[in-house]
Amino acid sequence: MLDFLASIGRIFILFLQATGRLTLFAVTGISHCFRPPFYPRLIGRQLVDMGYYSLPVVGLTAIFTGMVLALQTHTGFAIGAETAVATVVVVSFTRELGPVIAGLMVAGRIGAATAAEIGTMRVTEQIDALSTLSTNPFKYLVVPRLIAGTIALPLLVFVADIIGMFGGFLVATYTLDYNPRGFIGQMWDTLSTDDVVSGLIKSAVFGFIVALMGCYNGYHSKGGAQGVGSATTYAVVSAAIMILVSDYVLTALFFSS
């Protein structure tokens, strides 16, 4: 019994240590975002990688999710389905589906790539080389990604919201035979600034989480190719979990009242 309790205690202490290290990493990253030197060229490159190149995968996911959502809502509401479909598509996308779907897709694409790139730099001594060339590796590698992630995801989500609602509109008008003008009018009436803004704030947090987990796991990877592989897995899994947990916390914060 004592052994069992001791092993639970050990796991809890390890969890606290890991949380502490991650928190310290995040706080250091945020503090460096406001102190020179800044690397605008690198931030721009990361914005293109994280934002522009993620557009196809996020757009494709969003349009099919919007289409499925319209179909499912139609089958679920026997009476007043036309109004319900428009409302559900708009509210679901702006509040939840846009940020979460984009966050998860970017976690898979960018979180993995970031962890792999920085992890490889760690095990091949490229990060040490940065230090010997009078360059702070944290500022050069981590900060541009944190800034780009926080900016790129809200932009992606804004586009994903539009594409997702367009997917719902396509199914509603071509498959379910709703009146296009009436459907758009209903969507427009349902659309609320608060919902859109809360979704964009969520997505900024998710973007930060994706970049943070990619950088953290890559920066601390060790042991060659296997270590880099593990770092990549941890980056994606931990980012996905943290996105879902923080989604609940932010939703409770925004909508509990």
Binding site: E125, Q126, T132, L133, S134, T135, N136
Partner: peptide
């Protein structure tokens, strides 16, 4: 520390060139 590194040059065993 970064200032002190101006005095140094380093050749790494695996070259450690930035592949990007």
């Amino acid at each position: 520390r970064l200032g002190l590194m101006h005095k140094f040059g380093m050749l790494f065993q695996g070259a450690a060139l930035f592949d990007s």
